[in-house]
Amino acid sequence: MNHYNRLYQALAQQCSEAAIEWLKQALNAIASESDPTAKHQIASAMAKRKVGDQAVTLTLELMGEEPREICHWSSADCSRILLNLALIDTSDKPLTSLLSEIYAQGDERERAALLMGIPVLDPDAQWLVEAEDCCRTNSLLLFSAMVMHNPYPARHFSSRAFNQLVLKALFLGLDIAHIEDLQARYNSELSVMCADYIDERMAANRDYPASIWLAMRLRDCRPGTANLLADCLTAQDVGKRYYAALALQHEPDEQTEALQKIIKQQAEQETDPEVQAALTKLIESKRL
């Protein structure tokens, strides 16, 4: 079943009859009328009021990957992605100009829906330059839509754009654990950028984001960084402890005896179950 049918089916099963009736008419109008763009503009804008904004769950294969369950798109988001697909299907215009037009004329939520749905709308990354440009937004909503739980950036972005995206996510206070395939796209430049960011924060007497360690490898950092990471293992902030333990799972060669001692000691007194689990995994991986 293609994306269009899956989206439609999920909405049909999870929304009211009146909502689906409206959606069906809007989709038909886009498919059959002489000016599909005008129909699409109004329908996309009205979608939240007409279809609602409640949770929807659906299973999709994004960009040829294994099917995945998606539960962070609302009924309004799904409807808008579906309306976009309908316009792409009908219109004679090139995909890139269509997507740019939809983006330019959408409000923040309509734009967010386009970015969340970009793996569906543009699987071959024809709109890549514009998609990278969208990350320059001031809006946390738009940035998150492109960056969090979205496989598109890791699959298509240049290293430079991907690294900027990771750093900006940290800057905005987002948890970079939700950036897909971060580990697969790791590069040494990312460590340097993140280490500089930690330095900058500490120089200003400010804390740095706990999840930053996920984007760093000790081998690419200055000496001394390992001590900072070790300190995080015993930090008061549970986030710091959790991400330090998680990050060390990617650092099998960096675990000195001193570090292993700290890990074991912390595992004995750790009170948070998630940190405890991460530490246990770390200890077990080392035994293997």
Binding site: S74, R109, L140, A145, H178
Partner: peptide
């Protein structure tokens, strides 16, 4: 965003 489940139907602000 820490909890994907808490995000259902929303985008963060």
């Amino acid at each position: 965003w820490q909890e994907n489940s808490a995000l259902r139907g929303q985008t963060p602000i």
